[in-house]
Write a protein that binds this DNA or RNA. Structure first.
Lengths: 260, 260
DNA sequence: CCCTTACGTTCCACCAGGTGGAATGGCATC
DNA sequence: GATGCCATTCCACCTGGTGGAACGTAAGGG
């Protein structure tokens, strides 16, 4: 079944597989098969190609495959992160250095938010391995909810209209506009967003707030943590204010960078 | 003409093309054709695929193609385990070839360290079972103690907080913060960590040191030996310095691999 | 200890996808 | 207007890529 009619199928599959591999420290054939929907013999053949070319390594004792250093040459020519990411980078790195927990910066991309920067590589205790370019839903994920709750009323209305047409399971709540608006009002009241408790993995959680400028949401910033490591009081009284201060500092840097 | 007999040809060509694209701010079809040796129709077809999937952009006004932000998904997983294991592998294999004793590389995984690479299969004196993917405690095992003793103060504090909530027998000492910190101070003073003498197997021992970078512990490296084969003087005066040098070499390789 | 389950790997018949030379189109230069 | 150069499209050809089935191995449970 072709992914897109004007793509080279084998190439598309290989790239999707490599993206999935980047999400894990080590990934088995079974994990890659489930995540991509490709038959196992196809996964094996494509992974062998990636290993032969130096993009991946397979150590059977480790239990699977992992990315190798050659993958850097597939992206090292890209230098076009959004302004808000440039502004956020030093603040986010300093935060993770001081508090250990990883941060993510996400921006709106059609009807989801997309992670454009993360301090996961600099955190010793990250629940995730590679989240760059992940799409996160607006109604079930912390980074998305923080966007939808704090964006202008007109924008929220339009986004909810678009979400109502979606067939994604995580967008289902958009079909019940009243409940969706009530959820978002609760997020605004609380002052920060959290991942829906029904969404996996349940061993971790995220708190997220908007990065605001001129009444608009430029991006959202979220801190992810292991639920076994932080009790709710510590989370709400200690970390939420820190993430809010971080967001304000980032917004300030965006303003500075915008001056000619 | 196939690149390699065990690769998916179309995938290999696409990746080579993408690497070449990364070398240019903008690249024309002709440039890509000359650099890769692929026929122009092949280059066009593969570039169309890359554009359709979001890895490249075509702007005729700019004079060709350039990489797009999605390429970051192809490399963002190269940090932590994959990075440290790739950096450590050649150094560790050379060490075991020269000194025979097996080595293990371990990284932090929540509140324990996990062995991610081991030279046991390459050691002529490896009566030890394979240890890859084993979790080792932070307070009773050499590889764990090396991590906890030499990591930054803030991180140690947080890890001890998390360990205090653990019900694992080997984490019990975390309940007595003062004694735990005294143990770790002693490890730092000694310059290397050892397994708790009460922990089995007593016929063997491990010496471990941190792999440091920018004031943080990336991983720990440990050498396991038979206690009947080495006296303490030989261990401390001969092998500990060798393992420390090994760790410094690995750290250097990590820095090199981190460059874009 | 044996059976079952789950996962990784190999095989191979099948055919659809990928190939590249030739032709075409567009643009700049003289 | 002719020429040269580069990008793109076309399409006959055939080989590379596919995926279900079979096999091998290891782990877990009774």
């Amino acid at each position: 079944m072709p992914l897109k009619s004007d793509t080279v199928e084998a190439a598309a599959r290989t790239l999707v597989l490599l993206e999935e591999l980047n999400r894990h420290r080590v990934a088995s054939i079974d994990i890659l098969h489930r995540a991509t929907g490709l038959p196992k013999s196809t996964v094996v053949r494509l992974m062998k190609s990636l290993c032969a070319m130096g993009y991946a390594l397979n150590d059977p004792r480790q239990g699977g495959y992992s990315v190798a250093s050659r993958v850097k040459s597939l992206s090292n020519g890209f230098h076009g992160d959004p302004l808000v990411v440039e502004a956020a980078r030093p603040w986010a790195l300093a935060f993770t250095e001081q508090y250990q927990w990883p941060l993510a910066i996400a921006v709106l991309d059609r009807t989801a938010v997309m992670v454009r920067f993360s301090t996961i590589p600099y955190s010793p205790i990250s629940p995730f391995h590679g989240t760059i370019n992940m799409h996160l839903s607006l109604l079930c994920r912390a980074l998305g909810r923080a966007y939808l709750a704090f964006c202008p009323v007109g924008e929220r209305s339009m986004l909810l209209d678009m979400l109502a047409r979606s067939s994604e399971p995580e967008d289902r709540l958009a079909g019940d506009r009243k409940r969706a608006l009530a959820l978002l009002a609760a997020v605004r009241k609380q002052g920060f967003a959290e991942r829906d408790p029904m969404v996996e993995p349940r061993s971790s959680g995220t708190i997220a707030v908007p990065i605001l400028s001129g009444g608009k949401v430029l991006a959202t910033v979220g801190m992810t943590y292991f639920t076994s490591a932080l009790d709710r009081a510590s989370l709400v009284q200690h970390y939420v204010p820190l993430v809010k201060t971080l967001a304000a500092n980032i917004a300030g840097s965006v303003e500075s960078l915008r001056q000619p």
